[in-house]
Amino acid sequence: MPKTIVQEFTKGLWQELPPFRLVLGLCPVLGVTTSMENGLGMGIATTFVLVGSNLLISMLRSVIPQKVRIACFIIIIAAFVTIVELLMQAYTYPLYLKLGVFIPLIVVNCIVLGRAEAFAYKNKISSSMADGLGIGIGFTMSLGALGAVRELLGHGSVTVWGDFSYNLLSAFPSFQPFSFMVQAPGAFICLGLMLCLINAIGD
């Protein structure tokens, strides 16, 4: 039974939540989530690439020959990633400095190529857009959540673009930041525990 556009959108938010349900695209998930701000920034950049590449690949799906489809996908994705990189350099330079090499690495993020190959190449433009947007927002939320947990435990406070901030130390003055959490092994353990929690909640 074909899914409606709404279903295509919402599946990315829980059923196929990229890092937790599909366990895809773990490199940026582990690498950039040292703070909530970085996680959200990375998620938004990936969402842009996802929606753009899904749209274009779905539009061109009758033109792209079967044999060279992966090469075509990569050209399209790489073009979008470079656009994102330039735009971030132009308008959100501090975030660009923090995310560094992870922005160009969106090209090889398996979520983007995975959606192109498994979905956009076979589906209508509208549902491909909904799929890209849903998966992208799910990815952004996951990165934001993981970043928030790690930043809160590791630094004792969460700050997002200076507008929103919460300080754990004001609620628990004796709390001492658990800096293990913002280090690399903390990323694995934190991801594992969240994966565990989400599997326990189930569908």
């Binding site: 060279v68 090469a71 075509c72 470079t82 330039l86």
Partner: peptide, 24 residues
């Protein structure tokens, strides 16, 4: 297809690069 796609991508990137250069 590959040629057209690559040249269009290249053209777009050149345009974006030029447009954002001063801002960057």
């Amino acid at each position: 297809v590959l040629t057209v796609l690559s040249s269009v991508a290249g053209g777009v990137l050149a345009a974006v690069n030029k447009g954002t250069a001063s801002q960057i």
